Simulated assay, not measured.
Amino acid sequence: MTLFDLPDADTLYIALLTRDPSYEGRAWVGVTSTGVFCRFTCPARKPKPENCRWFDSLGACIEAGFRPCKRCQPLKAATDAEPVIEELLTALGERPEHRWCEADVTAMGYDRGTVRRAFKRHFGMSFLELARLERLRRGFEVMSEGGTVLEAGLEAGFSSASAFRARVGALLGMAPGTLSADPLLSIDWIDTPLGPMIAVADGHRLHLLEFMDRKALPTELRKLAEAAKGRLGFGRTAIHDQTARELTAYFDGKRTVFTVPLAYHGSGFYGQVWDALREIPAGETRSYGALATGIGRPTASRAVARANGANQIAILIPCHRVIGADGSLTGYGGGLWRKQRLLEIETDYARAARTESVSQP
Rank of each mutant, 00 (worst) to 15 (best):
E129P: 00
A201P: 13
G153L: 08
E129F: 00
E134A: 15
G195I: 00
S180D: 10
D188R: 03
P196G: 11
G139W: 06
R138F: 05
P183Q: 05
M174F: 10
S180I: 03
V168T: 08
A166Q: 12
T148I: 06
M174K: 03
L154D: 11
I187K: 01
L136W: 04
D188G: 10
G146D: 07
P183V: 07
V200Y: 06
P193E: 11
L154N: 11
D202H: 10
S186M: 15
D191K: 10
L130D: 00
R205Y: 06
L206E: 03
T178Y: 02
A166Y: 07
G195P: 04
E155F: 01
A163K: 14
E129T: 07
G203E: 14
L171W: 08
L130E: 01
R138M: 09
G146Q: 05
L154E: 14
G147R: 05
M143Y: 02
F140I: 11
V149A: 13
S144W: 02
E145L: 08
L171K: 07
V142C: 04
V168N: 05
S144V: 11
P196K: 09
L172N: 00
H204D: 12
E155D: 13
P193H: 07
I187A: 05
H204N: 14
A152Q: 03
L171E: 09
T178S: 14
D182W: 07
P196Q: 09
V142T: 11
G169M: 08
E129C: 00
